[in-house]
């Protein structure tokens, strides 16, 4: 090879080499910055009161809607006390004996399946595409967006339903701090929409 061509190809390699190194140095951080939201976690949920609704106010198959408040982070903003979501509460079975603090404590330690025999708490977010589910005239729930319908127990009302799963239940228990007026507290969560499985969105592992 002629020395001139040699030198030219060396310079070419050097330019591409430097260019590659530079691209990596600036490219990797840019990509990481760009996909940063990918590993932002959702807030940890903790048990929060539902708008102060008392247990005495529930009656069988009469859903009540309530608001859950908690601190909330919106990017850089911190809201010390904001609405984080709404829930439907349905009494689905007879009220257990909750006459003493001991009985309330025992009830709270029973399984969530057991507790749901008495009350079911649903998020108002539709499992189909995330609209807000309301009551419907048939006595169950209906989503105003794509006509997903649900029975009072949260199951899909019909098989030809846009929703892939029933309404999402939330874990709840009885607030033991005021034995005079028993209220429920709910651990609010957001779920991935339009899939068959109920899956929490970006939740941090429990501490």
């Amino acid at each position: 090879m002629e020395p001139e061509t040699d030198r030219r190809s060396f310079l070419g390699f050097a330019i591409f080499g430097l260019g590659t190194i530079f691209s990596a140095i600036i490219g990797v951080p840019l990509v990481c910055y760009g996909i940063d939201p990918r590993h932002r976690k959702g807030p940890k949920s903790s048990f929060k009161a539902v708008d102060g609704i008392k247990l005495d106010e529930f009656s069988l198959n009469d859903p009540r809607q309530g608001v859950i408040r908690d601190k909330r982070d919106d990017g850089w903003i911190h809201y010390p006390n904001d609405v984080i979501g709404r829930v439907w509460v349905v009494q689905s079975g007879p009220r257990p004996d909750l006459s003493t603090p001991e009985k309330v404590a025992a009830f709270n330690t029973s399984s969530i399946v057991e507790r749901e025999r008495y009350l079911k708490v649903f998020t108002t977010i539709c499992p189909h595409m995330g609209c807000s589910v309301n009551r419907d005239s048939a006595g169950g729930f209906a989503c105003p967006c794509h006509a997903a319908t649900f029975a009072l127990n949260g199951d899909r009302a019909t098989a030809d339903n846009p929703a892939m799963r029933g309404m999402d239940t939330l874990e709840w228990k009885i607030d033991e701090s005021d034995p005079e007026a028993l209220r429920i507290v709910v651990a609010y969560k957001n779920f991935v929409s339009s899939i068959e499985k109920k899956e929490v969105i970006g939740e941090e592992p429990a501490a």
Binding site: P29, Y33, D36, G75
Partner: peptide, 17 residues
């Protein structure tokens, strides 16, 4: 200011960009 603070201190490589 808060969003720039977020870039600088909380976003991945925000400080570098």
């Amino acid at each position: 200011w808060s969003s720039v603070h977020f870039i600088q201190y909380k976003m991945d490589f925000g400080w570098l960009i």
